[in-house]
Simulated assay, not measured.
Amino acid sequence: MSTTTLRLPPELRDRVSRLAQQSGTTAHSFMLDAIAERVAHEELRHAFLEEGNARFARMLETGEGLDWNDVRTHLREQAAGEASPAPQVKRWRE
């Protein structure tokens, strides 16, 4: 494992120390967990954006997609616990 130095403002260092102690862990472990959580979050966000961009490109290429009104109705029905068929792909441009 490599070593990296973090220069923390005193207020942040004190907050980390206090929370680590309350969590029953070391400040080092607390910071590692925080960094790992942020990295995972950013990786997931980037994957989400990449997938969205790929789907949008595919929509532009094929001229097919989901109608927002159909999607919204489906989501509302699902949220209400109702059985709702998935929206169907439609041509939206020729």
Rank of each mutant, 00 (worst) to 15 (best):
E94G: 02
G81M: 11
Q78H: 10
E94Y: 03
F56P: 00
R72D: 15
E82R: 13
F48V: 08
N53K: 08
K90E: 08
N69H: 14
L44S: 14
A47L: 06
D33E: 13
L75G: 04
E64A: 02
L12A: 06
G65D: 01
G81K: 11
A40N: 13
G65A: 03
T4S: 10
P9T: 10
E37W: 06
G81P: 08
L19Q: 13
F48G: 07
M59H: 02
M31A: 09
G52L: 06
L6D: 10
E11A: 06
R45F: 09
T4R: 10
R72V: 03
R76T: 05
P85V: 02
A40L: 12
K90Y: 07
S23D: 14
T62A: 03
R15H: 09
A36I: 07
T3K: 11
S17G: 06
T3A: 09
M1V: 04
P85K: 05
A83V: 04
R38G: 08
R55H: 02
A83H: 10
R76S: 07
F48P: 00
L8G: 07
R93I: 00
E64H: 06
A47D: 12
G52K: 03
M1R: 14
Q78N: 04
K90V: 07
R72S: 14
S23G: 11
Q88W: 03
Q22L: 13
G52E: 11
I35T: 11
A79G: 10
D33T: 07
D70Q: 06
H74R: 05
R15I: 11
D70R: 02
R58M: 04
L19E: 15
D33F: 08
T25D: 07
E77W: 13
S84D: 05
D70F: 09
S29D: 15
G52M: 06
A27C: 09
